[in-house]
Structure formats: structure tokens, C-alpha cells
Design a protein around this nucleic acid. Structure first.
Length: 208
DNA sequence: GGATTGATAGTCT
DNA sequence: GACTATCAATCCA
């Protein structure tokens, strides 16, 4: 059982502990294999960096709720709000392994244009893919993950060996002091095929 | 009202 | 393996 106390800690501590846990929605369950911590307003990579807005409002609330945001106009990314009330910390769910509900997930992930079906291991590999495989939409924004709602966060079947947990820096995101320090705020399970490809540098494409 | 953001899918080498 | 167009909502002035 995952408790509120478990999530009401700094995102950096919660993130590695979330590896191996299961998020479930609408008949589809995914075992998390890759996550990324966001430390609120002090974190330039966080949506909360520029203060509280309508979109990120949930992050400023208590832990245990789902923060969903839109990207690419049609995709969504899911985050678990953690930390204490008001600190705007969250953990982005980057990738996971599908453990049940494969039918539904595959049908959701089937390309509407070409009808092509992704490989099984690709069904939840990537933040937007994971959210889509689970069927999460803005309707699920602010959902209570610990309550009896449609979206639930469950303990994993087996405990993850700390030895297989890997961390990496989020290149491009530097320390508050501009000292060039990159925080190793990305966590994944080593050897998992469902972990998304490592993209070192942010694809900075400035429009002219 | 206008500009920016953001991950993916599809295509090409 | 790598690159670019894509869409809609959100943010700021």
C-alpha cells in the first residue's frame, strides 16, 4: 500500500522509490521503469519554475495527485505530485512496462493514420506514450492516486534491487547558482527494455 | 490577440 | 540511426 507519507517527501527521494510501482487506469496497468524528479519552483526544468499557473496548479497542492499536461496538441504527460503541500514537487512518469490490459493499450496506441501497431515494449516507452497507453487525459487532471478513483498507484510485486537503479543527469538543466552543476534527477531500472532512449541534450531548436 | 511550448510519428539516409 | 513537421493549449503583453 502506498501512503500519503510515502509521497509527501522531496521528489528526489520519492522518484527512485517509485520505480517498480504500478500505475493503473481503465484496465491498463504499467510497472514504472523510468521516472524523473522535478523540484518545484527552484527547478528550471519544471513547469512550476515560473510560479503557479492554471496549468500547474495541482503541483502546488498536497502529494498523491495526478498532474497531467498537454503537449504536441494531442499527447499528454503524467506526473505524480509529491513533496509537502505547497512545494510544487512532482515526479514525471517517463516509461513503464505493460503488465496488464495490453489489448486496450495497444488499441489506444494504434496509429490513427496508418493503422500501424507499435511493438509491445514500445507501448509505454516515453512519457506521452505511457499516458496514452493508460488512457490518461486532461479529465484525469488532479485525480487522487491513493483514493478509490479511476487512477491508482499500487506497490510493485517485487522490491527493486537498489543495485539496478540507475541515475543520470538532466543535461541542460543546471543548478540555481549557474555553476554548471547538473542534477542526477533521472532514475531508471537498468536493463529494462521499456526504458526510453537516453537523450542527452535538449533538442534546442530555436525558431528564427 | 500573438507567440511559445513540447514529444511523437513518419520519412529519409 | 537521425531529422523535421505537426497540433492544441497555455502564457504574456
Amino acid at each position: 500500500m502506498i501512503t500519503h507519507e510515502f509521497l509527501a517527501r522531496p521528489a528526489l527521494e520519492v522518484a527512485p522509490d517509485l520505480l517498480g510501482t504500478v500505475i493503473e487506469h481503465d484496465g491498463v496497468a504499467v510497472r514504472l521503469t523510468e521516472v524523473e524528479a522535478y523540484a518545484g519552483e527552484q527547478d528550471p526544468g519544471s513547469h512550476a519554475f515560473r510560479g503557479r499557473t492554471r496549468r500547474n496548479e495541482v503541483m502546488f497542492g498536497p502529494a498523491g495527485y495526478l498532474y497531467v499536461y498537454f503537449t504536441y496538441g494531442m499527447h499528454t504527460c503524467a506526473n505524480v505530485v509529491c513533496g509537502t503541500d505547497g512545494t510544487a514537487q512532482a515526479v514525471l512518469l517517463r516509461a513503464g512496462e505493460l503488465i496488464s490490459g495490453e489489448e486496450a493499450a495497444r488499441s489506444r496506441r494504434t496509429s490513427a493514420r496508418t493503422g500501424r501497431v507499435p511493438a509491445v515494449r514500445d507501448l509505454a516507452r516515453g512519457p506521452a506514450r505511457l499516458a496514452q497507453a493508460l488512457g490518461l487525459t486532461l479529465d484525469d487532471y488532479g485525480a487522487d492516486l491513493l483514493g478509490p478513483g479511476t487512477v491508482r498507484l499500487l506497490p510493485g510485486e517485487e522490491r527493486i534491487d537498489p543495485g539496478v537503479i540507475r541515475t543520470g543527469p538532466r543535461v541542460g538543466v543546471r543548478g540555481p547558482g549557474g555553476d554548471g552543476t547538473a542534477y542526477p534527477w533521472r532514475f531508471w531500472i537498468d536493463g529494462e527494455p521499456s526504458v526510453s532512449d537516453y537523450r542527452p541534450a535538449a533538442p534546442l531548436r530555436r525558431r528564427s
